[in-house]
């Protein structure tokens, strides 16, 4: 992750923190609503990002996503660090279930990108399991290139779209 990306994430975090419950019922903004299926809705509390047990903290402070190089499903050092943080949070908050969404940028063919997104999601899932998250809490889904977070057709957006997003769900009472 480069400095610009970090700043962007920080800005995004601040913007999110400034809102009061910006997207009720949907965790992992910028994900593709992995649990939703056909309009299904899960409800949960985002909480205060300063509360380390909150979903908001998971999304904004730890980071709910990791990024990949072009056509790669290998974790970057930054990615591994983020995922270690995710794993620690998930171990401490066992009431949450997880869907790992794998995504690709638009610079590949549609079906190959579904397979590539599946491989990215699997890489993240394996890492989380290796860090002690129970396998039965984890599920993966690939969206290929169908759900970009950034619309621009330029490398800076493609870099942000090649991602795996860890979407947490459950713990509504939390």
């Amino acid at each position: 992750m480069n400095l610009t990306t970090k700043s962007l994430l920080l800005l995004a975090g601040l913007a999110l923190a400034a809102c009061n419950n910006p997207r009720p019922g949907m965790f992992g903004g910028g994900g593709a609503n992995g649990f939703g299926g056909e309009g299904g809705i899960t409800t949960g509390t985002l909480g205060d990002p300063n509360d380390p047990r909150s979903v908001a903290h998971f999304q904004q402070r730890i980071g709910d996503r990791v990024f990949f190089d072009d056509n790669s499903s290998d974790l970057t050092p930054e990615g591994r660090s983020t995922l270690s943080g995710q794993a620690a949070w998930l171990r401490a908050n066992p009431q949450f279930a997880v869907v790992v969404e794998g995504h690709a940028d638009e610079r590949g063919t549609r079906e190959y990108n579904v397979a590539l997104g599946a491989r990215r999601a699997d890489t993240v899932q394996r890492f989380l399991i290796s860090e002690g998250v129970a396998a039965n809490r984890l599920r993966t889904v690939s969206y290929g290139k169908e759900r970009p977070v950034e619309a621009c057709a330029e490398p800076r957006c493609w870099n942000r779209n090649r991602r795996a997003v860890t979407v947490v769900s459950g713990g509504a009472a939390g």
Partner: peptide, 9 residues
């Protein structure tokens, strides 16, 4: 068809 599981397709 393709089936993706365990990181392979």
């Amino acid at each position: 068809f393709s089936a993706a599981m365990g990181g392979t397709t």
